[in-house]
Amino acid sequence: MNALELKGVSFSYEEEGGFRIDNLNLTVGEGEFVAVLGHNGSGKSTLARLCNGLLEADAGEISVFGVPLDSKNLFEIRKNVGVVFQNPDNQTVATYVEDDVAFGAENIGLPREEIGKRIDFALKATGIEQLRHSTAARLSGGQKQRVAIAGVLALKPKIIILDESTAMLDPRGRREIVEVVNKLNKEEGITVLLITHFPEEALMADRAIVMNRGTVVMQGTPREVFARQEELLTYNLDLPRIGIICNRLRALGLNIADTMDEDELVKEIVRCVS
């Protein structure tokens, strides 16, 4: 079954005119890890908001595990589709980590013991058990975003959407988040939609999607997408750094095979030089 299905979805902000999302079709399979790349204003954040009903589409149909999204089952959909936002400071409700993780579970009226179990699970899955009683405001950016992921996990969603959740983090924080998300996808089988403008983050995904002006303009495995550098550049996107390095080395006359893996690249270089 498809985890997420968008058929002919359009959306525009009243005050702007012109479509933010323009006749978008997208299918995400259960357990899939999809990276959505796009430049500013490509509509990728709007996509996240549409998928869990924070925004209502003007036209088209969105369904989650076969259930169409409408005002009646908004709650069910939101339980299943967790969203982690960009600014780590603006999505924590409580002062202490534990209370914040509990927030979502409290909202859906779970009994106390169950909330406790879910906090344990969420903190463990995001690797922040030791921060349970810390003050959220004093954590690092990466830690704060992991708390935000844990807060979403406490609702046991089947899909997690990360809406540029790494944009405000330093490289280390970004790596932490991508690793956690990858682990959730592989170990917990959670479907992931990672929205980002860092090409590096798309490498781990099963599929990469490029958005421009509200529609999907490219898609395929990350390797396939990054093999089309010219086209990416027209959408104001570039290759991950490792791809750029490959190209530079080739320009220097080394016969390097295309790779997106650091170890492979090292082997390639060794092979070419020796």
């Binding site: 339980k79 969203v83 936002f85 999505q91 509990a102 409290e106 909202n107 859906i108 106390r112 979403v152």
Partner: peptide
Amino acid sequence: ELGDAMDARCYSGGRKRTKY
């Protein structure tokens, strides 16, 4: 933004809510 994040985590006031 906080309002959105709360909505996304199924917040709907105190009625059905439990407390940890």
